[in-house]
Amino acid sequence: MRILNLLVLLLVLPITAHARPVSWPGSWMVMIMNDMVSNGAQVNYTVTPKYALGVQHEYFREEKFNMDAATLDVLLKRWNNQGSQANLYLKSGAGVAYGSGETDPAAFAGLEIDWENRRFFTLYENRVLWAGDQDKFIKHKARLGVAPYEGDYGDLHTWLMLQADYDAGADDTFSLTPLVRLFRGTTLVEAGYNLDGAVLFNFTQQF
């Protein structure tokens, strides 16, 4: 029973998980997302190798409002090299934000650039959100990761990562989160512990 409780807890804990938002054409992706500010989930469908369409729900804990949005994720550029890969993505969405009895139009957009080989991983991402009277912010995120071993296809891959978040408008403008990424096949799980005391758990599944 305790294990069941833990599993349920894992599925509702805050997540910031982000595998690549655009996958192979015809595939579906479920992402549960949470960071120090919001909890959310996204389902998307990759239409072509260049873009994916989806829907996203997010709850912003501090400002206490929800946002429902249609999303468009675009692979702007991929650099395929022998032994490494880099990507530039546009992540965007538009919908409505609601809370405290008010409803406002909402939109967000951001760029993500990453580079990885089988041993090292780096990422920078920003996000601008405008939600009328509910909230407005600009956030930045960076990650560094190292794989302690190189697994082959089908093996359990393990990454040790450090994530830095910066939000000039937040109470805690800067935060660091060490985390572990476990990755096998089309399932990705991340768990970490924020230095400010928050547990981090991320989950992505492709179909």
Binding site: R20, W24, R78, Q85, E116, N117, R118, G185, T186, Q206
Partner: peptide, 15 residues
Amino acid sequence: DGMVCDFCARSMEKI
């Protein structure tokens, strides 16, 4: 080139 992870590998299989 660029096939560095399981997501990449699964994409190739699917296609």
